[in-house]
Design a protein around this nucleic acid. Structure first.
Lengths: 191, 191
DNA sequence: GTGGCTTTACTACGATCGTTGTGATCGTAG
DNA sequence: CTACGATCACAACGATCGTAGTAAAGCCAC
């Protein structure tokens, strides 16, 4: 069981560092110092190997720590979201792997759905985002939660794989503050 | 010359459809119905082949049509940005290829920079974004232009490779409107 | 036309890959 | 202790890949 976890983790790292093209049974073996063929035993095909990485990404990724209290002002929300954002960026690997896999599984809708629509992480993230927006009194919080996830992905992309890697990065805090402000939240919902 | 362009275009399509992993000299030959070895003649190594795609992406991609008049109200800006966004999404291929390559060139900083920091498209996009924001009287338009590019990338990601492909997509127009509104633009700069 | 340079077609090599099979080894329930 | 299922190490296959070389075909200046 531990062996399988090691393989999944190493495979995810490979994808995060060099994209799906760098993902190979033998490369995983080498990275872990295991004899060739070990990874092939656990993931009998390349598709299974990619599935392993997809599951690993889902196992690691979370947008917000679940114990976060619901903020009642825009500024509190900005602070909380920014902190969560920086945490994910600092971790890095799983988000990079997720983005790489999202593109490279477009030809395999089943795997792609496991990463996006059908991902348990997606549901959790949307629910947390919705709760945060509801606490601020933002209307239409369902669609707005989807929008927030989209914005966050843009910020992730910039910092982890885009211009922000070597150039001037986006100002995540300013983006989130402006967006939340512009939503015209009437303030916290009175009890 | 035309031959090389065909190869570059076909290579970009392959990357857009199946990621960098699907990019191969022989696959490009087959897609174009050319005898095997033709692509190898124009891109003597795999790195050259990827460079070809990078250049092709830069050749095709533009955020805004350059002749767009500078908007003077938030609503005009929203309309213009949304229209440009939908245009890029409808085209699709180059943005998908760019995102795939961004990740898969992380191990090759030179190629990665050509896609991001050193890209001529990047400079154009930032300048257009900055002009648009200046027209609205938004302060610190330099950093805000970077932020806008980040937001747009998030929207692209959602629609082209993320949840929006098969699930409920982001509301790009609403996101842009909220963000622009929240920037607290004092209105168009008086002449 | 003719000489010289570029582009094409075609072939071949070694390396790596995905995949499968076969025993050996381990852990554990009976 | 033993038997049995799961995990392991290891070997081997055909296919595909990256890369490079060579000879024919095309093209253009002169």
């Amino acid at each position: 069981m531990t062996r399988r976890d090691d393989i999944a983790a190493a495979a995810m790292e490979l994808v995060a560092e060099g994209g799906t093209h760098a993902l190979t049974h033998r490369r995983v073996d080498r990275r872990l110092g295991l004899p060739e063929g070990t990874t092939s035993n656990h993931a009998r095909s390349r598709r299974e190997l990619m599935l392993l990485v997809v599951q690993q990404v889902a196992a690691v990724a979370h947008l917000l720590p679940p114990e976060a209290p619901t903020p009642s002002t825009v500024e509190e929300a900005v602070e909380q979201l920014t902190e969560a954002f920086e945490g994910v960026v600092a971790r890095g690997v799983d988000t990079r792997a997720r983005m790489s896999l999202s593109i490279d599984t477009l030809l395999d809708p089943e795997l792609h759905a496991l990463l996006t629509t059908d991902s348990p992480v997606r549901a959790t993230v949307l629910e947390q985002a919705r709760r945060l927006l509801d606490g601020l009194g933002v209307p239409d919080s369902g669609q707005r939660a989807i929008d927030l996830a989209g914005i966050m992905n843009g910020l992730f992309y910039d910092r982890l794989v885009g211009h922000g890697v070597h150039g001037t990065p986006v100002d995540a805090e300013a983006v989130l503050r402006a967006w939340l402000t512009g939503l015209g939240a009437p303030g916290p919902v009175s009890p």
